[in-house]
Design a protein around this nucleic acid. Structure first.
Length: 200
DNA sequence: ATCAAGATTACCT
DNA sequence: GGTAATCTTGATA
């Protein structure tokens, strides 16, 4: 049973979508292996005023997926080693997205551990290391550049469904992590007191 | 053509 | 808490 959100869920304001993605289950099915987790930390990246957004200087070959309409999946490669996954927001042509920064593992945990090359000892000592960062969760879920451009509303490889119902009191807000421009914008949202969040 | 920076992570002290 | 690793991209010439 999958009850996917509708297109209009993603075509709303990016900050609204960012908050509403918290508590949803993100799933992948890669080479027959199903894995999933609850989204516990996100960041919004928006067109025009946001100098940290990949779309700040307009459309390029790399960021063209961010200009599709809301609900698409934008995956990029960073620091020569890692992938990061985003959910595109707003109407077609706008160029905004929400970065998924951390998930709490739900299904396919053994598969995730294998992909992350975590042994039993490591996963017992620090289980959060499995998915408490944008590059880590992509590795655990088997996400790479081939998934960029997928439509989350119509893909058998990557999709979302509502899972947790959160109250606004449970949501924390801060500046974004790892950027050097537009650092004053408080566009990072996370579930308070959740140990899988990358950083407090 | 060249080059610096990057929405990160793992490993070290 | 500091930093090397690693390579693609986009800006500039």
């Amino acid at each position: 049973m999958r009850k996917l959100p509708k297109r209009n869920f993603f075509e709303k304001s990016t900050l609204i979508v960012a908050k509403q993605l918290l508590g949803m289950e993100l799933s992948t099915r890669i080479r027959g292996k199903k894995t999933s987790g609850i989204i516990v930390e996100v960041e919004a990246y928006r067109h025009k005023i946001d100098q940290a957004s990949h779309t700040y200087r307009g459309k390029t070959k790399r960021n063209e997926v961010m200009f599709k309409h809301g609900g698409h999946c934008y995956v990029y490669f960073i620091y020569g080693k890692y992938f990061c996954v985003n959910v595109v927001t707003e109407k077609e042509g706008i160029g905004s997205a929400v970065l998924i920064r951390a998930i709490e593992p739900l299904n396919g945990i053994q598969t995730m551990k294998r992909r992350r090359r975590m042994n039993q000892a490591a996963s017992k000592k620090l289980p959060e290391k499995l998915t408490n960062g944008p590059g880590k969760l992509c590795q655990a879920l088997g996400i790479d550049g081939r998934l960029s451009g997928e439509d989350l509303l119509n893909s058998s490889a990557i999709y979302l469904r509502p899972a947790l119902r959160l109250k606004s009191k449970q949501i924390g807000r801060s500046t974004r992590i790892g950027i050097t421009k537009s650092t004053e914008l408080k566009w990072r949202f996370f579930i308070k007191n959740n140990s899988w969040v990358s950083k407090n």
